[in-house]
Amino acid sequence: MKLDPKTYSKMVRRAVPHSPVLKDCLWAFFVGGSICLAGEILRQTYLTWYDGEMAGTLTSISLIFASAVATLFGWYQKLATHAGAGTLVPITGFANSVVSPAIEFKTEGWVSGVGAHIFGIAGPVLAYGTLAGWVWGVIYWAMSKGG
């Protein structure tokens, strides 16, 4: 065959249709922005009763609850086919990545299915987030000793 991997890789790059970047970004901006706006409305509401930190936590919990409901009915998935990073990056996306495997792997049982898969997608985020926090903690501690 008149083909080698190098030529082919160039051919493939030419043949791949481009993503509609502008449309994708507008979706991501408006959906992502709206989720954050909803978060801010919740936060301001909670601020009337709680301090800033607790208001932030309650905002997260509320959004996670909303995302769990939307995931349950399949709405989150439908929105995400358009919104892309707009539904991926907010905390609702994190919640979706925990709720969806829990629902999906129920057929494999509560322990080996749901329990084992629940962090299948969100696990890396927690693992490396925690590690990064720990590393920063050590540096911060060393700085506080040194300083």
Partner: peptide, 9 residues
Amino acid sequence: TPLTYGGKR
């Protein structure tokens, strides 16, 4: 991914 997971193809 799970069917209710939100992803863009």
